[in-house]
Amino acid sequence: MRQNKQWAGWGAAGQQAQQHYLVEPRHLAGGGDLRYVTEYLRASGWKDKSKAGGPVVFDSPDKSVRIGYDPFTQPGGWTISGKQTADQEAWHATCGRQTPVEIVAGITDALFKERKAHAPNMWEPLQQQGWETERGQHFTARSPDGDAFVRFHQSGPGQAHWWAGARNEHGRVWEVMFTPTTPMHLVQAFSTALSDPQPVMRPLGRVPSSQRIRTTSVSVLPSQLSAWQQARITAARAATWARNSFATNRTRTPPGARPYAGRSGRAR
């Protein structure tokens, strides 16, 4: 069902409004604009290693994580890979080409966030949004509409496999897979973004052809789109500045000074 709304907001007089659609559920909204992910990475200090006409490739400042998007291979899509470190085994996550960028960003944005003190629970966000769980050959959670799923299977110690996907009346739309070594806070961030009930915006011509989605037509000024995009970039830059500032101040802490206590209350 489509509704029409005039999107209230700011913008210079005389601007021509553009038609967009708010799409729900988000897991069937289509891939979206890659810049939702890549511009956040760029604003966070990641190095753009992409070659003209080739796949998108970004490396973290310390070169420990690489994020890429390749539309030229099959099945193609997003790859997020972490190198082995002193505290973490190498890990890998893949997201199909039609995985909504807002869900991919749930994983990539979490790379910049401080880990919480308590152990991650990736099922909790799903259960809070009414996803139903079932035990069979695999432990599975399904969205209220039945069109998206998250599955877990442990084949042995340290072999916890996570994968997820969505389908519409035409068949499988996308799939996401995590290696057993993927940090659990990233898997939880994915499940949080996946189950978020907020619709996502797609421009005219980029709305998937499916009877399983609900759309709301909105008129959006170019200045509004620019402002929303800039707000996300500004947030990334501010978070990066705060991390760098903290790291610099920590190295300058004089001997005997009281150590910083994080959210967990433990000294660092």
Rank of each mutant, 00 (worst) to 15 (best):
Q88K: 05
P208G: 08
P71A: 13
T192A: 15
A13Q: 12
N244M: 11
I103Q: 01
Q129L: 08
K5M: 06
T234W: 02
L225P: 03
T216I: 14
M1H: 12
V101F: 07
I233M: 07
R202A: 14
Q137Y: 09
K83Y: 00
A242P: 03
T79G: 05
G68D: 10
Q6M: 01
A105V: 01
Q16V: 15
S155Q: 09
E24W: 00
D87I: 11
Q19G: 07
Y260H: 15
F246W: 13
G106H: 01
K116H: 07
R167S: 11
P75E: 02
A166P: 03
Q127T: 15
W241Q: 15
R232A: 07
P120Y: 02
H118M: 08
W7R: 10
A247D: 13
G68T: 11
P259A: 05
S44C: 03
Q6T: 14
A86P: 04
D147F: 13
C95F: 15
P183C: 02
V23Y: 05
A119S: 12
Q18V: 10
A43W: 05
T215I: 15
H138M: 15
G136C: 10
F58V: 00
L22Q: 06
A166S: 06
R237Q: 14
R250K: 10
L194W: 05
P180W: 12
T85D: 00
E114K: 13
F112C: 01
A12E: 01
N249I: 13
E24L: 10
L186D: 07
T79L: 06
I80F: 04
S50M: 01
P259R: 03
K5P: 12
M201K: 15
A238C: 02
D145G: 08
P183M: 03
